[in-house]
């Protein structure tokens, strides 16, 4: 079966080469200390950093997608999400859908009417995940999705991610939290010297 996401010799000047197949509904977890290149891998897959090699979505090469179209389907959620407007609502393409998802993550939906400045780090992280999910991507590239969350929020986030996995989304999860990687990852890799090694 064609993997949902396939990396073939994907590399940048400072990371890789990476070869990896991720099936639909599978979560691949990559663990490693800060600075080992985990985020570089995700940025490379999302085409945010220039590099060589090829990535495929359901067998279709990335070069055949306009970059924005690729990123809508292979969606990257950064560890420290960026915000480009003062109001929270401006960051969501579909506010009604956002409110529903926000509830599942245990966030009061009136936060959507406020300003970004007043959000806590954990709220920002979950809201960033919500805005990423709204585009209904085929692949999720998650960078430390639960780093700033309390245990209840971690449970809720994991539950939500499992639902998305069940619906056929593939996830590449990078984290320094080995427990999270074991719980959510179907396969685990370690990042060493900016290359992947089986864990």
């Amino acid at each position: 079966m064609t993997p949902r996401l396939r990396l073939k010799g994907l590399r940048s000047a400072i990371a890789g080469p990476f070869d990896l197949d991720v099936a639909a509904g599978e979560c691949v977890a990559v663990v490693g200390p800060s600075g080992s290149g985990k985020s570089l891998l995700l940025r490379l897959i999302a085409d945010l950093d220039p590099g060589e090699g090829e990535a495929f979505l359901d067998g279709r090469p990335r070069a055949g997608f306009p970059a924005p179209a690729w990123r809508r389907r292979v969606a990257y959620a950064a560890a420290e999400p960026g915000w480009w407007a003062e109001g929270v609502a401006a960051h969501f393409s579909d506010l009604a859908a956002a409110k529903a998802l926000v509830g599942e993550l245990g966030i009061a939906s009136n936060l959507l009417d406020g300003t970004v400045r007043r959000l806590s780090t954990g709220e920002r992280q979950r809201l960033a995940l919500v805005r990423t999910l709204l585009a209904e991507p085929d692949v999720l590239l998650l960078d430390e999705p639960t780093a700033a969350l309390d245990s209840d929020s971690v449970t809720r986030t994991e539950r939500l991610l499992r639902q998305w996995l069940a619906s056929g989304v593939a996830i590449v999860l990078v984290t320094h939290d080995t427990a999270l990687a074991s719980r959510l990852g179907d396969r685990k890799f370690a990042m060493r010297d900016r290359r992947l090694a089986p864990a």
């Binding site: 990123r71 950064a78 960026g82 960033a128 585009a135």
Partner: peptide
Amino acid sequence: RERAAIEAQLALGAAIGTSMRG
């Protein structure tokens, strides 16, 4: 200064022109 904000929009599938317009 606004790198994270620009790249957040790019990661959601915005065109670079849209992300930099402001």
